[in-house]
Design a protein around this nucleic acid. Structure first.
Lengths: 247, 247
DNA sequence: ATCGAAGGACGGAGGATCAAACCTTTTCTT
DNA sequence: AAGAAAAGGTTTGATCCTCCGTCCTTCGAT
C-alpha cells in the first residue's frame, strides 16, 4: 500500500473553500492610494487640511518616499489633493473635492458581503464602546451628534457627520484595528450609499437611532447598544436590497 | 497671503492616526504561507489531508506556481507538510504536526487588539447565523457539538472541534469574508490559548455556552445569540487578562 | 512497457520598491 | 539683503518579488 493512499484514508472533513481563495496582495502603492483616498472621501481628512510632510509621512507609513510620491501623484491627478512648494508648502486636500465616481461592478456584486462585514465591525464597536467609552470620548460624540441634528437637509454634510460618529465610536472603543476596519467598511458603504435618495425624514429617524445608541453607550449597556446598532444598520440594508441586483 | 496659509485656516478636526499607520503589504509568498499554515494549525486541513495539485492550487489562489512552491517549501521545511512524487503523489499535511512555536512578542503585545477583533467577528457571525442558518448547516453544527462533548479530557482535540464550530457558524452565516476573518482571528487566538491550562471543568462550562449559543441560533434569536457569544468570549478574555502583560 | 499526473528545478523578463542623492521653490530668520 | 531652512520635485541604480515558460524526474495505472 503506497504512502499516498495510506495518508488519504485519514478522516478528513472538507476544508472551507476560503482556505484556497485567491490571495489578494495589494501593492504598497495601491494600498496607500486607497488609505489616503478613502480618508479624504470620508471627510476624515477635511478639504484644506494639510498632510504631513512627505519625508515624515513615508516613514510613518513604512514605505519609501518614491512610493508615497506615486500615490500622491495619483491623488493629485484625480483632483483629491494638490501640492505647493517651498517652505511652508505641503500637500493639501482639495476644496472642492472632485465628484465621486459611480460604484464599480465589483462593489455592486459584493454589496451583501460588505454589509455583513459592516454588521460585524459596527456590532463589535458598539459593544466595546459601551464597555470603555470615557466621558471625554462621550463628549466628543455628543458634539458630532449635534452636528448631525443640524444637517437633515444636506445629505452630503449629514453623511460626513454620520461617518465621524461611527468612526468616533470606534475610537472610543479604543481599538486601532477596529478604527481601521471601520474606515474601510465605511469607504465601501459610501460608494453604495451615494446614489440613493435620502429624504430628511429618513435622516431624522436615523438620528433617533443614533441618539438611542449613544444613550445605551453612555449607560454602558452593551447589549442594548448592539441591538440599536443592528436595527440602525438594517435600515440601510433594506433600502439597498430594494435597489441593487441580488436584493 | 500665501495659498498655503489660506488653506490651513480651514476648520479641520484631527484625523484618526490610523489613517497614517504603516501600510503592511504582505508579499504573495508570505500571505500564502500564512493562509495554508493557519489552516493546518487550526485543523481545517487535517493531518493526512491532501492539498490540491500545485498546478491547480496556484490558479485557485491566483499566484504563479513558483510562488506557491516557495510557500510549500517553507511549510515542508517547518514540518507541516510533505510531498510525494509520481502519479498519485501530491502534497500532504504531516502527521503528527510539529510542535507549535511559542507566541511571538508581536502577538503578546497586541493580544487585546486581537480579542477585540475576535469579538467583532464572532458577534457578527452569531447574529447573521441566527438569521440565516438553514437546517443542513444546523445539522453539521450539531455534529461538531457532539464531538465537542466527547473531548473534555483532551484539550488539543477539544480546541480543534471548537474551531470547527466557530468556523462552521461563519459558514452558516453565508459570508465568505467572515469565514476568512474567522480563520484569521482563530489563528491568532490559538497562539495565545495554546499555553494556558484548560481543565475539563472549564471546557465543560464552555460547552454549556456552546449549547445555548446553538439553541439561540436555531431559534433565530439573533440578539440572544449575540449575548451568549459575548459571554462566551469574555471567559477566555478574563483568563488571558490574568496571565498576560498589560492585563 | 508506456502513458499520464504529479512534484522538482531553472532562467529570464518585468515590475515594484527602496535608498540616496541632488535640484527648485518659497518663506523665515538674522 | 543674505542665507538658512523646509518643503515638494527629480534622477539613478540596485534589489527583490513575481510571473511565465520549459524541461526533468518520479511512479502508479493501464
Amino acid at each position: 500500500m503506497p504512502a499516498a493512499e495510506r495518508r488519504r484514508s485519514a478522516g478528513t472533513l472538507a476544508p472551507p473553500e476560503a482556505v484556497f481563495a485567491p490571495v489578494r496582495s495589494q501593492t504598497a502603492f495601491e494600498e496607500t492610494v486607497e488609505r489616503l483616498g478613502t480618508a479624504i472621501k470620508l471627510g476624515l481628512l477635511a478639504p484644506g487640511a494639510r498632510l504631513p510632510a512627505e519625508r515624515e509621512l513615508c516613514t510613518r507609513m513604512g514605505i519609501a518616499r518614491s512610493t508615497l510620491r506615486q500615490a500622491l501623484t495619483a491623488l493629485t491627478q484625480s483632483g483629491h489633493v494638490f501640492a505647493t512648494r517651498g517652505r511652508g508648502g505641503g500637500t493639501f486636500v482639495s476644496d472642492p473635492q472632485p465628484p465621486a465616481d459611480p460604484p464599480s461592478e465589483h462593489v455592486l456584486a459584493e454589496w451583501r458581503e460588505v454589509c455583513d462585514q459592516r454588521l460585524a465591525v459596527e456590532l463589535g464597536v458598539a459593544v466595546l464602546a459601551a464597555d470603555r467609552a470615557d466621558p471625554r470620548a462621550l463628549g466628543a460624540l455628543d458634539e458630532v451628534m449635534s452636528v448631525l441634528e443640524g444637517t437633515l437637509e444636506d445629505f452630503a454634510a449629514y453623511r460626513q457627520a454620520d461617518i465621524r460618529l461611527h468612526v468616533g465610536l470606534a475610537e472610543a472603543a479604543g481599538s486601532a484595528r477596529l478604527v481601521r476596519a471601520m474606515t474601510e467598511v465605511q469607504g465601501a458603504m459610501t460608494d453604495l450609499i451615494a446614489y440613493i435618495a435620502h429624504p430628511p425624514e429618513v435622516l431624522s429617524s436615523s438620528n433617533a437611532q443614533h441618539r438611542r445608541l449613544l444613550a445605551a453607550v453612555r449607560e454602558g449597556d452593551a447589549m442594548r447598544a448592539a441591538k440599536v446598532m443592528a436595527e440602525h444598520l438594517q435600515g440601510t440594508e433594506h433600502v439597498l436590497a430594494g435597489l441593487l441586483p441580488g436584493g
